[in-house]
Every structure is written in C-alpha cells, then in structure tokens.
C-alpha cells in the first residue's frame, strides 16, 4: 500500500455552519506534515472524515488509494490518535491496548512492544482513569503504533505534554517519518511544529490556505516586507508607491514596504535622492507567517486587533 493520504474536495456542514469547504491536500510519506489552522478551521473534522468516522457531503478522502472503511485490519494501515481522553477509566492501559490488538489479530507480545516504545513501562498495568493527560497521549501513541502502520494521523498530540514530553514527541515524530511513514500532525499552534514538520498544510474556514514546505513559506512571507526609516516619509511613499509597492506608516519616521525587495528600495530611493537611514528586510518566524496567512481565516478575531496589526 502507498503510504499516502489524499484529501480531495471535502465539503461538510454542521447545520448552517460550513465545516469543510472544499478541503484538498495530499500527505506524502517520509516526512511530517503539519496540519495547522485556528480552532474551528476543520482540522479535526477532516481527520474524522479521513478515518471514516464522519461522512462528507462531497469529495473523497483516501488512504493509499482506498477509503478507510474498505480497509481490512485498518490499524495495520493507519494509526490514529484523535482524543487521548477516550478511555474506559477502570480498564488498565495494557488491557486497552490488548482489545485493540485482538481486533487486528495481534497478540499480547505486540502490546508489550508498543508499551515500551511509547515509554509507558510499568504504568501500563495501572487503570487508565488515573493517567495524566501526558500519559494518555503516550497511551494514544502506543495505540496508534499497535499495527505498525505506514500512515499515522495525530490530532493535537502536543496537548498536555510537559516540555520534556514535547521534545520526546518531536523526536518520535521525526523518527516515524524517517522510517518512511506518512505522518499527519495537527496543531493550532505553529510553534509546536516549527522544528518538526517539513511540510505544512495551513487551513482556515474549512479549506486549505497554504500547502507548502516550511522553507518556501518562510521565504514567501519574509521576502514581502521591508522596514524603512526615513526623514522624508511622504516623498518616500510617493516614490515607492509609484514603483508598485504597498506602503504603510508604522511610526513618525518608519514605513513598512511590501511588494519590493530591500535592494530595489535602496536603488529607487538613491536614484530619487530620498534620504533614508535604515532599510531592514523583515525576517518572519513561522509563527508570524502563519499569523499572516490565517489572519483573514481566523474564526474569531477582534476588529480592533485587526486594525492595530496594520
């Protein structure tokens, strides 16, 4: 089976609310794909549709070319962690993994392997009801690994992890991808994925805003803005706008220019003899790039905050 996830034109409503509005993207094997967007952007719904839990009104979601519901022994093909709290509290972690293993024709030996792999150790014989959220995430990871699947789908796996756990999770995801698996990881916080994901699918309001590598995204956003400090802001604005740039005043002597590279700005202002004392290409972080992309897509934003950002 090809270790891919292909999502094509998914549409879905919850009553009058549009949950998915033509969601389309592909997850390829060999690297971690970050699935980011604000809360309510449709990440979890998309994952549930991929996993056959929710039905989409339109479009298709295929794993290795097949819909999830047609997979036999699905946990051998896809490992998923949707909600780490979905446990019977009075059942031990090991027994939770055991019934899952039995459903896929796997035995207790495999259960003990994934318990060790997820770092649960002797805690696995305790009742899951007493687990911290971090422990539950590890148990969820163990469950996702049970069938040794080529495709892994994790919904907000960083939630509830302590810093040590976050480091562990990042290394773990990198290792899984390094083994040639397709790994799709959702998060509403870009910084969680900053050093982990090689590819990003940024979503908002039920559709994909950007489907790009991390490097491309950073370059695209960083290249677009230059900060200019000048003693003649009015003249500078006239010259730069004439050249096709978009200029915004940031302070008395500070302008933000987009649409022109820093070298072009220096050349233009020099040729027109407009005085300036600082030109700085803006170096965006992934977080800022993400904010930029999702600003219009964020479901809940304050009008004043939006103005202040300009």
């Amino acid at each position: 089976m090809q270790a891919t996830i292909e999502v094509n034109g998914l549409r879905k409503h919850f009553g009058p609310t549009v949950a998915l509005d033509g969601m389309s993207f592909t997850v390829k094997p060999g690297h971690v794909t970050g699935f980011v967007g604000p809360n309510g952007a449709g990440k979890s719904t998309t994952m549930r549709v991929i996993l056959g839990l929710d039905a989409a009104e339109e479009g298709s979601a295929l794993i290795g070319g097949r819909p999830y519901k047609s997979l036999r022994n699905p946990l051998r093909h896809v490992g998923a962690l949707l909600d780490a709290a979905a446990l019977q509290p009075s059942r031990t972690a090991r027994n939770h993994l055991l019934w899952l293993a039995h459903s896929q024709g796997l035995g207790a030996k495999r259960v003990d392997e994934v318990i060790a792999r997820a770092g649960l150790g002797s805690a696995a014989r305790r009742k899951a009801g007493g687990y911290s959220l971090g422990m539950r995430q590890r148990l969820g990871i163990a469950a996702a690994l049970l069938g040794d699947p080529p495709v892994i789908i994790l919904d907000e796996p960083f939630n509830g992890l302590d810093p040590e756990g976050i480091v562990w999770m990042r290394e773990f995801l990198a290792e899984l991808a390094g083994q040639g698996r397709a790994v799709l990881v959702s998060s509403h916080l870009m910084r969680e994925l900053q050093d982990t994901a090689a590819h990003l699918v940024v979503v908002g309001r039920g559709k994909v805003i950007a489907d790009t590598s991390v490097a491309e995204l950073l370059a695209a956003v960083s290249g677009s803005r230059v900060t200019l400090r000048t003693t003649a802001p009015l003249e500078a604005v006239r010259v730069l706008e004439h050249a096709g740039a978009t200029v915004a005043a940031l302070g008395q002597d500070t302008l933000t220019v987009s649409g022109l590279a820093a070298e072009e700005i220096v050349a233009l202002l020099g040729a027109r003899a407009v005085p300036f004392f600082e030109v700085a290409a803006h170096r965006a972080t992934l977080e800022e790039a993400y904010m930029e992309l999702t600003r219009d897509a964020a479901e809940f934003r304050a009008a004043t905050g939006q103005e202040a950002a300009r």
């Binding site: 090809q2 390829k28 690297h31 040794d148 080529p150 390094g178 083994q179 698996r181």
Partner: peptide, 8 residues
C-alpha cells in the same frame, strides 16, 4: 530521512 514507503 528516506522517502521509501514504510513496510511493516
């Protein structure tokens, strides 16, 4: 890192 598909 490798892009070979994973085989269990």
């Amino acid at each position: 890192t490798t892009t070979l598909p994973y085989h269990s």
